[in-house]
Design a protein around this nucleic acid. Structure first.
Lengths: 191, 191, 191, 191
DNA sequence: AATGAATGAGGATTCATTCAT
DNA sequence: GATGAATGAATCCTCATTCAT
């Protein structure tokens, strides 16, 4: 892989987290990446064009963590609980990035790429739900593809709000996670 | 009266919808509002400080529409369907604004105000769920306050994604609404 | 006298001292004067047109102090010492204003008025020197009018520099005053 | 090299002389310097931060002229007369700049730099007086360091006032120069 | 005379992007 | 590929001044 490109992406993630997307400057990113200003434009055509790469890194990070923590030998509910845990953990660390990705980047330029990037995430969840449906664990009326998007949206939304608005209330995250799990279990019609 | 202030807010909503938040210029807003550039700064300290006022208008709009359309004589499920309809309709018209509000404004400056603004919305939903719980329509383990936030988040998320990503697919909105309603019904444990 | 006009002038002196001339805003002045923004323009045609009035107040203040403190029964040298004292005292309190007046206001618009305002100050000094010359206390080659300007300039310059540059050195003012007095005495050719 | 920086400084001096400090625009300066607007901010952090550099150029110019014109073989009085001539000449050409420097920049931000910049000028004068004192040409009670500041202040003040207030009166400069020289000679106690 | 909301020209400053080395 | 000085368009915001009340 291109070492410099990776450096830029990670520097950008840091800077966006620290300063917010609007206030982040290309000059901050390159400073953090330890490269020259011009070098940025060898790898990315503009300041915004780095966004899909960031989203990709985040999605990969999410999938890696999910795959690492979700044990197939666990029960479905336990696995779902683990997924929720992972999403909350990442949402906590990358609040700003998350919000940004969530808002669809406030620009429709990269929508196509967006979906491509998200698809492995949705696919994993879709298969997860599909398997559970086949195994008769969740209700038969579940459409795995549709529900994957909906469920991820639900978990991410609550996770994001938890860390944006809760005033350092440590227990809040646990309460929210419990609520989401319970609602999701009923929503999926777990038997 | 705050006639000028109201003009500015509505002009800002229009401009943000048309051009996106990033590209919107203060000069466009004041032109649309029919006032001088300097007048803007009598009422708002900066371009971003309008955001809470906009959010307030959106929340009010949402509540007005919900109260207008939700008929108490309807069944709970029918009322829920109506709420989903309203959210989808407004999300469609004010996609950009919605995304922005949703992203928590990409700045932590106004978070406090945010919650104040959203609280009537959450209160309504909480009472809606509380009444249903009292009437034995939804499961007893529901915490109306927690679930209000969660349910609003679920509906808004799916609504937003629907109009951001669906490629002009007219049916998609109906499919999504149906999915959300079904998932929510199960999640709430409607009997 | 017009009460409002006086209020404006004194408010302006305060604001200029606190914020410097460049950063002083008309809005600060009127706030301090306790009047409306528009009222300022009833008494002064522009922000800068208040300058001559300020200079006048300063000159009057200077003359009042000099006349109050200089005792005709004192020796010439003692009287000169008192003048120096007064100038240093006022320079200390009104450093910014002094610098401003001194710089000729950085605008040639009010030069004519300037001279009119300063003339009683110069006149007093000229008479002071003329009397001393007649009494044979200072050298005969002194031209009282020319030397008045020169002497005032000398004292003011050193006073101003003393308070601009001396880093809170309490003794510096005394040393400078002594030096000025000595130089002036020799310059005037005191016998 | 600092070719660009030098260009900016000299362009700024020109523009300040032509338009006055307040009315000078950065855009005028860069236009005259033949560079882009943004380039200005690579070398100077703001419009005012160029002032110390200008003062430095002026002080250097003054010293160069003094050293060029003051001949060591001349008598002390002749040398002093030459210094006065030089100061008057430069004050005439750079009236605005002079007034600005003199007013201590109307802002205390750069006072520290100010003294650093002026020190070679004061040093030269101090040595000039010290040598004269050693040679027994001026009175023994002279403190060269103190008197250097005082003498420069005297000459500059009168020079400045001469060109600010004299209404194109050609002879005035000569009269003033003569007066200053005579007063200074007595003040220094020339034997 | 007094008010103070409204004005809008005006200019400083920023920062994404380029390009000669 | 890498550099980073140079660019200059873009736009926010200020604040002296006006004028209807």
């Amino acid at each position: 892989m291109d070492n410099k490109k990776t450096k830029i992406i990670h520097a950008a993630i840091d800077v966006f987290c620290e300063q917010g997307i609007e206030k982040a400057k290309v000059s901050d990113i390159v400073k953090k990446a330890g490269i020259a200003q011009g070098t940025f434009y060898i790898y990315f055509s503009s300041k915004l064009s780095i966004m899909p790469s960031i989203a990709q890194v985040m999605v990969e990070k999410m999938l890696v963590e999910i795959k690492k923590n979700v044990k197939e030998t666990d029960s479905f509910v336990e696995q779902l609980r683990t997924v929720i845990d992972v999403v909350f953990t990442i949402a906590k660390d990358y609040r700003e990035i998350f919000a940004m990705i969530y808002a669809g980047l406030a620009s429709t330029e990269f929508l196509q790429e967006w979906e491509t990037i998200y698809s492995p995430y949705y696919s994993w969840m879709s298969k997860f739900l599909g398997d559970a449906k086949t195994a008769g664990i969740i209700r038969e009326t579940i459409d795995p593809d549709q529900t994957a998007v909906l469920l991820i949206g639900l978990i991410e939304t609550v996770a994001e709000q938890t860390f944006l608005y809760s005033h350092g209330d440590k227990n809040m995250a646990d309460i929210k996670k419990k609520e989401v799990l319970e609602f999701a279990m009923h929503g999926l019609g777990i038997k």
